[in-house]
Amino acid sequence: MNTGSTASPTRFRLALYQPDIAGNTGAILRLGACLGVGVDVIGPAGFDFSDRALKRAGMDYLAMAALARHDDWRSFEENRKAEGRRLILFTTTGDTPYTRFEYRPGDTLLFGRESSGAPEEVHAAAAARLLIPMPGSGRSLNLAMSAAMAAGEAMRQVSTIAPS
């Protein structure tokens, strides 16, 4: 089920695999709305995914977000493949730093669950598994922070921001 406006088909998309935390999902919807980037949410989510709950998490940005809801991994994959989008997974077990990867317009940048990441079937479907290096002592970054960092690098590389 799709809600909201549509983002440019040539831009990349952000995708969340079974997100656990409504606040992170809301922040990523806001990020997508502000950058003109579509957001896919692959269910089931670990929180109430009703329009009321999303409005609370995404504040007034939900109406501007190009949100696509997918009941499960299978329906997401069918849609992604039909659109010809390359799947790029961000994971703490990635083998390539996200800043050393060559993004292309149309890529889907996928992030796993906050609590457990993504299962092996999701890893197997990815064209690349990227890592955000963390030279500090933290275990992992917040999901919304990771999505923002990835979106910034993808936008920089594919020049989706018009020069001023």
Rank of each mutant, 00 (worst) to 15 (best):
K81I: 13
L67T: 08
Q18H: 11
P135V: 12
V37K: 02
L31F: 03
R13S: 14
M1D: 08
L130A: 05
K81C: 12
R69S: 10
L87I: 11
F12P: 14
I21C: 09
T108D: 11
Y17G: 06
P97E: 08
F111R: 00
W73V: 07
D71Q: 09
H123C: 10
G36R: 04
L110K: 10
P97C: 06
R11S: 14
P135R: 14
A27P: 05
A148H: 10
A45Y: 01
T25A: 10
L110F: 12
N79A: 15
T6Y: 10
M145E: 14
K81F: 09
A68G: 13
F90Y: 02
R104E: 14
R113S: 15
P44W: 03
L14V: 01
L141A: 12
R85Y: 12
A144C: 06
L130N: 07
L109F: 04
R11I: 08
L29I: 04
F76P: 05
Y61F: 15
F49M: 06
R104T: 14
A127E: 10
R85G: 08
D20Y: 08
F12N: 09
A33K: 08
Y61A: 06
G32Y: 10
N142D: 00
S50W: 06
R85L: 06
H123F: 11
T6V: 13
F76K: 06
L89R: 06
I28P: 01
V122M: 07
L131N: 05
F90V: 00
R113C: 13
E77C: 11
E102A: 15
L29Q: 05
A45T: 06
N142I: 02
S8M: 13
R56C: 09
T3P: 03
A7N: 05
G23C: 02
D48E: 01
P119R: 00
L29K: 06
D95M: 02
